[in-house]
Write a protein that binds this DNA or RNA. Structure first.
Lengths: 113, 113
DNA sequence: TTGACTTATGTCGATATTCGATATATCATG
DNA sequence: CATGATATATCGAATATCGACATAAGTCAA
């Protein structure tokens, strides 16, 4: 089944921050883990992920550090800051509020009309 | 609490079609009913609603008819077509899939790492 | 009666989000 | 040695939403 990607847009930041709650991770790893944890529902594209990570870093929610490596291209690990952790908690609450409201509307309007 | 409007963006079309499932409605009425049924969580702006209605009409999901009136500005009522009804069912299913995946990710990754 | 508020539909430009395409580079596997 | 996986990144296009603005009729109180 082809899913409309825009159905939950705006929540990608929340998902990424949530992944970092468990510990530092690098971009590609996040893509993989998100696919796994969501049973292939969320497939983050590189064109979405990397600009998003830069934005989250600019906002102070995450910080980056580079894995030391001689030969190959270094991995950029990201770390969830205290500010990011607070922001994540707020966003999680917001999502629950929205999801609850959605359920209410989808339940039907028989009792209202 | 100020809610981030973009958190569930993309689902507005689904909400509007859902409202029309109960019967024909006009734009302003949808705004009111959506606010009521969602306990003030969803507040549809006119700048969002009217262009959206025109788009849904173009796609054949809804049809419009004007309330007969001599003096005042006529209300534009919208009707859910069969195509729209099918589309609504698909979108509802998609939303449930996404919401389920969201819950899985937000549950935490302890069991995965 | 005048001013404010609600009802009602609509456009426009700005902003944000996401995707697809493209680019680059390393490593493992056949 | 070519293909695919790993890994990060940019760019332009498409889309969604909002805030501001415009218009116009009805209601209600000072």
């Amino acid at each position: 089944m082809k899913l409309d990607k825009s159905l939950l847009s705006g929540s990608t930041g929340l998902l990424v921050l949530k992944l970092l709650e468990d510990g530092d991770k690098y971009g590609y790893q996040m893509t993989e883990e998100l696919r796994r944890r969501s049973d292939k529902t969320f497939e983050l594209k590189s064109g979405t992920l990397y600009p998003l990570l830069h934005t989250l870093e600019q906002k102070g929610y995450i910080t980056a550090w580079e894995e030391a490596s001689d030969s190959s291209r270094p991995r950029r690990y990201y770390h969830l800051t205290d500010t990011g952790r607070k922001h994540l908690a707020e966003k999680e609450q917001e999502w629950r509020t929205y999801a609850d409201a959605m359920v209410k509307v989808l339940k039907g309007g028989e009792g209202y009309a």
